[in-house]
Simulated scan of single mutants.
Amino acid sequence: MMATSAVEKIDYWQASILKEMELSRAQFTHFAFEKHVHLDYHIGVVCHGGQRYHHRGSEYRLTPGNISTLNPDESHNGQSIADGGYEALVMSLPTSYVQQVGGALNQGELYFSTPILDDPKLRAYFIRLHRQLTLHQANITPLEAETLLLGFISELFYRHGKLRNLPSCQARLSGAQLDNIKQQFHQGLDQEFELEQLALSVDLSKFQFLRQFKAATGMTPHAYLKRLRLEYAKKALMRGDSAISTAYDLGFFDQSHFNKAFKRAFLITPAHFQKRVTP
Rank of each mutant, 00 (worst) to 15 (best):
E109F: 08
K182E: 08
L23G: 01
E146Y: 08
F266V: 08
C47Q: 12
D83E: 13
A199C: 04
S24K: 06
A233F: 05
I81F: 13
K235Q: 13
I181R: 01
L156I: 02
D40F: 04
F207I: 15
S68F: 01
S154Q: 10
Q183L: 08
Q187F: 06
H160T: 03
V7Q: 14
N165H: 11
Q191D: 05
A3H: 09
K226W: 01
S75G: 13
M2D: 11
V277Q: 04
F126E: 04
M91F: 07
F262K: 02
Y53T: 13
P167Q: 09
T220Q: 06
T114F: 04
F266S: 05
E22A: 09
E144K: 11
Q170H: 15
Q187H: 09
M1P: 10
L129F: 01
P270G: 04
L210K: 13
F258A: 01
L230C: 06
W13Y: 13
D73W: 12
Y60C: 10
S75C: 15
D40I: 02
T269M: 00
M21K: 03
E194N: 10
L225T: 08
Q187P: 02
T278L: 12
Y86V: 00
R56T: 14
Q208N: 14
A32Y: 08
A243Q: 06
N180P: 00
S24D: 08
V277E: 06
E231Y: 03
S96R: 13
S68A: 11
S16H: 07
Q274A: 08
A15D: 08
E194R: 12
A6K: 12
R61Y: 07
N139I: 05
Q51H: 13
Q27G: 12
N165I: 14
F253A: 09
E196T: 07
N259D: 02
D254C: 03
F157D: 06
F209N: 09
E34N: 15
D179T: 07
A82S: 11
L250G: 05
F207T: 15
H160K: 04
I127G: 01
H54G: 15
S75K: 07
Q274Y: 05
Q79R: 15
Q14V: 03
K9N: 11
D83H: 09
G49D: 05
I81H: 05
S68T: 00
I17A: 03
F253K: 13
G65A: 00
W13V: 09
T220D: 03
K35A: 15
Q170A: 15
G188S: 01
D40P: 03
L93Y: 04
L117A: 00
S24C: 13
V202I: 06
A26L: 04
S80I: 09
R128C: 03
H76I: 11
I81P: 02
Q79D: 14
I67F: 02
R52A: 14
A216G: 07
Q197Y: 08
L178D: 00
I127P: 00
K226I: 03
K235R: 15
L62P: 12
I244W: 04
G175K: 14
D203F: 01
Y60L: 06
S5V: 11
N77H: 11
I17K: 02
Y12Q: 05
L62E: 10
A216M: 07
H222D: 12
A261Y: 02
